[in-house]
């Protein structure tokens, strides 16, 4: 069994950094001087170096022949999954936009109707004509073009579009 190190922690750090070639020229010279003068430094250095060489006995792994192929296969599968996810995300985004636009149109329409009803000029309760328009939204384009309720009333009263005619 070797004797315990007689170097302080800082001295040992310097010695190991020297052995690793990590010291600048001046610090390396200082360590070399200590190595020449002090047998304890030399013993410590020898022990440390021999221990470091013992690590050569550690196993070094070799990847199996299939490793590269397996990695590439996993990568391709992961990319395919990623593409599917992106497609789904795009679809969901478009759907969300379409729903938002439809929602906005509907709310706009509702707002338009309610604004019209709430305008100071609009009588309350709404007139028979306005109720007719609310009941039959399909009449709106005709009303917009004609600007008169007369035709719409006639249309409503007539059985022109009723089944059996």
């Amino acid at each position: 069994m070797s004797e315990p190190s007689s170097l302080s922690e800082q001295e040992r750090e310097e010695l190991i950094a020297y052995l690793d070639g990590e010291l600048d020229a001046e610090a390396a010279r200082a360590v070399e001087e200590k190595l020449q003068r002090h047998p304890a430094w030399r013993r410590e250095a020898e022990q440390l170096q021999a221990t470091w060489q013992m690590l050569d006995f550690l196993p070094q792994a070799h990847a199996p022949a299939s490793f590269t192929e397996r990695t590439l296969t996993v990568l391709q599968a992961s990319q395919a999954r990623q593409r599917r996810y992106q497609r789904l995300r795009r679809l969901l985004t478009y759907t969300a936009w379409a729903a938002a636009v439809a929602c906005a149109a509907f709310l706009g329409f509702q707002y338009g109707v309610s604004s019209h009803l709430r305008s100071p000029d609009a009588p309350w309760p709404p007139s028979e004509e306005v109720l007719l328009l609310l009941e039959h939204r399909s009449y709106w384009p005709y009303y917009e073009k004609l600007g008169s309720f007369t035709f719409l009333k006639q249309l409503d009263q007539s059985d022109l579009f009723q089944e059996g005619n």
Partner: peptide, 29 residues
């Protein structure tokens, strides 16, 4: 294991002055 020290810092511990044990190579799995 060699007992020699490097001549200077640039030798480092990775450049042993004597015979060196061959690293053990693990079998591929």
């Amino acid at each position: 294991l060699p007992r020699a020290l490097p001549h200077n810092a640039t030798d480092g511990p990775h450049a042993p002055a004597g015979s060196q044990p061959q690293p053990h190579t693990a079998e591929p799995h």
